[in-house]
Design a binder for these strands. Sequence first.
DNA 1: CGTTTATACGGAACGACGTTCCGTTTATCA
DNA 2: TGATAAACGGAACGTCGTTCCGTATAAACG
Lengths: 200, 200
Amino acid sequence: MKKLLEHPEKSARPSKRADAQRNTDALLKAALAVFAKSGVDAPVRDIAQKAGVGVGTVYRHFPQRSDLIVAVFRQEVDACADAAATLAAKYPPTEALSRWMLRFTEFVAAKRGLATALHSGDPAYDILPAYYDGKLRPAMEMLLSRAAAAGEIRAGVAPGDLLSAAVSLCRPAYDVAPDHTKRMLALLIDGLRYGAAGGR
Amino acid sequence: MKKLLEHPEKSARPSKRADAQRNTDALLKAALAVFAKSGVDAPVRDIAQKAGVGVGTVYRHFPQRSDLIVAVFRQEVDACADAAATLAAKYPPTEALSRWMLRFTEFVAAKRGLATALHSGDPAYDILPAYYDGKLRPAMEMLLSRAAAAGEIRAGVAPGDLLSAAVSLCRPAYDVAPDHTKRMLALLIDGLRYGAAGGR
DNA sequence: CGTTTATACGGAACGACGTTCCGTTTATCA
DNA sequence: TGATAAACGGAACGTCGTTCCGTATAAACG
């Protein structure tokens, strides 16, 4: 038998040691930076050094290299999803939607390296699309329904459709003007406005 | 100064030693088999062993691992393109077209492992899409124009469109009936017949 | 035929990487 | 403060891709 919930603590946390928690955070931060600079194929040793820990510590927190990649990806998805609430509180509905979609495309563009790793066939990444969808779709749904309730855009738009539309807009971003994505996004938002109930 | 074209030989061949040519062939054959069994990430040593040579010999013929992958891919593309002429000689125009498209989808399905390697971002594979296109598009163009000239299908169909249509038909071939691709192909051919000049 | 020589061969060796192991350090709690 | 479970660091291991070099041999010549 194991003692569980001896002290309820904060909540569903098995009470980690302080240094362990610090190193987990440092590793996620370092991995984010190293992946951005050298791609997802960067050596684990580089990440360990950047975080100021030994490789053993990396593997204590993330038993496989892919676990670290997944964790970074989730962290970024979470940040992007959280931005939806922040923007909704700070801007009028449609502007919040517009700003969030810009934020989302930035996320997609920055994570293209990760995306190719996801499609590499490694089953370690199979869970990610579901996580991605479960977090980002509700965020977009919230923004959409607020804007629709305010009569600023038409109702009945599927959030998933809009997400994948935004993703595909980022696709040909190689040899195209740097503001191409922004312009396409603006077009998309205008398209939503077109059949609005308010009919302004 | 180097002596060149001392004996004109057969043609554009720098006259390779017989054993070298034998080993090149053996390596291509072995690589094809190993890639099919263990995927494109199979170790070079496995391929060397299967071909009955040392690793040094592999690198003499294919300076990089990716060169071997590219060579196998080209060989398969060539075989598929050559099949077009064979089929055109043996069958009536539209049946030749139909049979070749089936052959082509088999090629695509078998090379899915290679395809993900192609999209890995490694610049070593950048030449392949052009090669692929340059070989397969003319093959399909020939079959199409023959069938059109015979009045069996409509004219003015872009070969590239048909190729990518066939490719996308192969895409969701995971959890679907095994003859799904065949049925979709038949549909495609029927669609071509629809506006035929002969109007049979 | 032998001789010669450019060419190809085999596999040990190297460096980089993911991952494991274990002796040492440290946070936590009584 | 001392005990103890947890976490740490980095040397070490096995597997890669790739290189190197002594050996073998195909082929051209006498």
